[in-house]
Design a protein around this nucleic acid. Structure first.
Lengths: 261, 261
DNA sequence: ACACTCTTGTGAACGATGTTTACTTCGTGA
DNA sequence: TCACGAAGTAAACATCGTTCACAAGAGTGT
């Protein structure tokens, strides 16, 4: 019934079990990618595996549980991609020119933030089905943001990837932010609570700018993936880069933007 | 087979037909709202209407056609709401103070733009199921943005509500926009084509700002409706208003924002 | 008034789906 | 060795969209 999350601990049975569990998710993902959300059916998965549908209930509590597990995996894969892009920039930029010779401090962090954002879009655009599962319309009956859900912690990890870079950037290279008076008074306690609970240790206006930037990126990428931008643009990548650079300028990264453009 | 779009033209049979067609959509919507996307099934609709499922095929080509028709209706309802809000502001503000006495020209248009945007969010938040259908994950098998689809022209109408206000605002009260050099070169021809085909007669940077603003609004509202913002905010309305005002300032409407805040 | 046509609706059926239940088979740990 | 528990199966139930042949009815032309 309950999915044993044991990694590969001993008892060869559990290893077999984990392998089968993984195979189910692999087949499910292949079906999802190749034939769309509608093809993500237990029976189809079972058929592809040469097994009957009820057998899958030994590994997942049902269809929605499997979807939730997939979502968690996708979240983590996306985070991995973003962190990989971040790490790559770190070595590249860092090795080319010693940090002391740079005109501005925090250039590496800025590049990492850009790279992570680009990686977010790249993964999303190249994995539209997976993206839809985690960022699209909530699947009826699947509370992705429920506690006790693996997808929930994965989602929080995702949030922290951006947040950590933002915090670093602010620490090493603060930028202009709106005045507190420009923020809706009712927003402040919410930001305050998020700062504490989410571990985003920043001044409130910076927290707002962070959320605002994330919403801009999310909006643009979501529109692109869902085809809600085709009414205006045939290829959304240039628009994304333009928007990213505009955000960069907003964060006082004009030099980094000029370097990348 | 084909849905007769005749309003209520003569032949009492077609009136009856239109009424039944409307009842189907009404029942479908009630099911959608009360029980979610999954409950939007032909059989459930038929059951509620005291009729068998195949009867519905006399009115709609199938499940996806019904969904597309609903989407078109929702689009139009949303547009109506936005235009109503726009019209209300026009009379209010216009009657209070004669336009010549205002400090800045175009204040009415600015208020209308704000009101329409707020109306967009209000409708979206109070109609999450309907919103999901038109702005969420594309339903597999339903090309909402296919030509020949009623939803397509409704979608274009929606785009024009914002665009028209933007054009008016720019005409009467131009604002600061990014330099052409800040736009990705590959973006320019796309903007140019959209300007012509979409009838958005504006300088290219203004077209970009328009799309950027729309993406920001879309992103924030989508995140709110889909619950992708709950990780940080318990009530997204203050954040929305803050973002809206920030956009207003970006469009040189600091006075209007101050007035509304 | 009659017959004819076209519309509307029905019932049965087909192939899918998720899920539950009882039953079998078989590996593994004591 | 042997019993326990895990893994898998077959059958069944309730759904779903969709198609088909057919019956009843309204509307119409003569």
């Amino acid at each position: 019934m309950t999915v044993t999350t044991s990694p590969d601990a001993g008892t060869r049975r559990s290893r077999q079990r984990a392998a089968t569990s993984q195979e189910i998710k692999d087949v499910a993902r292949r079906l999802l990618v190749e034939q769309g959300t509608a093809a993500l059916s237990l029976r189809a998965i079972a058929r592809k595996m040469g097994v009957t549908a009820p057998a899958l209930y030994r590994y997942f509590d049902g269809h929605e549980a499997l979807v939730a597990a997939l979502a968690a995996d996708f979240y983590n894969e996306l985070c991995d991609q973003m962190e990989a892009a971040e790490a790559a920039v770190g070595s590249e930029v860092g090795s080319e020119v010693p940090d002391e010779q740079r005109a501005e401090p925090g250039t590496v962090v800025a590049h990492q933030l850009m790279a992570a954002t680009i990686a977010f879009r790249t993964w999303s655009v190249t994995h539209p089905a997976e993206f839809s599962l985690i960022f699209g319309t909530p699947i009826p009956g699947v509370d992705l943001y429920d506690e006790t859900s693996a997808a929930c912690v994965a989602g929080q990890r995702f949030g922290l990837v951006f947040a950590a870079l933002f915090i670093q950037l602010w620490a090493v290279r603060p930028f202009a932010v709106p005045d507190l008076s420009e923020l809706d008074p009712r927003l402040l306690p919410q930001l305050e609570e998020y700062r504490e609970r989410g571990g985003v240790d920043l001044p409130l206006p910076v927290v707002y700018v962070f959320l605002s930037c994330w919403a801009r990126i999310y909006g643009l990428v979501t529109m692109e993936v869902f085809g809600h931008l085709t009414f205006a643009l045939s290829d959304a990548e240039p628009a994304f880069m333009t928007e990213l650079f505009q955000i960069g300028r907003l964060l006082g990264l004009a030099d980094v933007v000029a370097e990348l453009a």
